[in-house]
Simulated assay, not measured.
Amino acid sequence: MTNTPTLPSEGACRCGRVRLKISKPPILTMACHCTGCQRMSSSAYSLGAAIPTDGFEVTQGEPVIGGLHGEHKHYFCGHCMSGMFTRPAGMDWFVNLRPTMLDNVSWFSPFIETYTSEKLAFAETGARHAYETFPPMEAYEGLMAEYHTQS
């Protein structure tokens, strides 16, 4: 199994009113166990694929901002309310896509997991690296390089 989708790759929210496309591979894949992600995803953790901004586009419909309406913009379909992607504040170079929005997600597995300090006891992701909160900023370059060598 590869950690890279066939490109370009398209996807949509649950009702199909908002469609998107990625044309570049992920920089990194992840699972987040923080309680905010648990609540937003209604699950034990949320999944994310960091897609370079210039490799991501909404091709149909108009997503709306949901979640906390704070500095990090969480985008949802305004009709079915599927959480689709996040544009993290101060990190304009990538979009955090919920990979399950893609039509084919068979390639996906989380490479890192974050906020294991808030992890539910039964939740397992199979991620190669685990962090109690987020990795330190200086670790990201090495993590991205390692991710790409195995993709």
Score class of each variant (00 low, 15 high):
R14Y: 09
E141Q: 15
P8V: 08
S117K: 12
D54Q: 11
F108A: 07
H33N: 12
T133C: 06
P8E: 05
T86H: 01
P136D: 13
E113R: 06
G67H: 03
M137N: 12
K119Y: 04
T53C: 09
T114I: 14
R14I: 00
R19A: 01
F94Y: 15
C34W: 11
G36N: 14
A50H: 09
M137G: 08
P52Y: 03
G48F: 08
T35D: 13
H79S: 13
T29W: 00
Q60P: 00
L120Y: 09
A121P: 15
A89S: 15
G16Q: 03
E138F: 07
K119M: 06
T114N: 14
T125K: 05
V95E: 04
L68E: 13
P135C: 09
T114M: 15
E124D: 11
S42M: 10
V95M: 06
E62T: 15
E71N: 12
Q60R: 14
S46M: 12
H72K: 13
P25F: 15
A139L: 00
L28F: 01
K119D: 07
P88H: 15
G55P: 01
E62L: 04
H129I: 01
E141N: 10
S46K: 10
P135N: 08
I112N: 02
L68P: 07
E124L: 09
G67P: 06
F85E: 07
C32T: 01
A12Y: 05
C77F: 01
A50G: 09
A123Y: 03
R87A: 02
R17N: 14
V64Q: 05
K21S: 13
R87F: 03
G67N: 03
C13R: 08
R87C: 04
L120G: 08
I112A: 00
A121Y: 09
S109Q: 07
Q38G: 08
T133P: 00
S106A: 15
V58S: 02
T86N: 04
F76I: 10
L28V: 10
